[in-house]
Amino acid sequence: MRVVVQSEPFDLGALTAGFAAGRSDMGAVVSFTGIVRDTDGRLDRMEIEHYPGMTERAIATIAEEAQARWSLGDVLVIHRHGTLRPGELIMMVATCSPHRGDAFAAAEFLMDYLKSRAPFWKKELTADGAAWVAAKPEDEDALSRWTR
């Protein structure tokens, strides 16, 4: 498992290619990438704040839970903080498994939990000013399908 919280950009291609490299027992790699979205052409930048220390712990806990639930060879989570422009990559997760079902499910689980259980807060800055992105009820609802 590898969890990285950083302000710098990351190389999606190199990380995805290197993930699970040499693991011939893994038949499936799933990766997800989050991108700064500018819905209406007004976004100048996004500022992502986090809670150093708790962020890494919370993500590691989520990744450990994924590894306990599914048969995974490895988990990679990279999440950026700081100032990001539209189109920049915010974060990625990658999972690998002998079969695709576990890799897909674990990647979705990781994303659902990262959304509302990893201590990040997004602020959008437009020409009109700045506004904190509010958490959506759907994000919390998304967790209920994983509770058993």
Binding site: G34, M54, H79, P119, W121, K122, W132, A135
Partner: peptide
């Protein structure tokens, strides 16, 4: 650095953080 709730006791706690619902991902 562990999510908790407002009824929780503070005995032995060293660090308390307050924040809005998280918006990661």
């Amino acid at each position: 650095q562990e999510l908790s709730d407002f009824d929780a006791p503070l005995a032995g706690v060293r660090e308390v953080a307050f924040f809005p619902p998280m918006t990661g991902g």
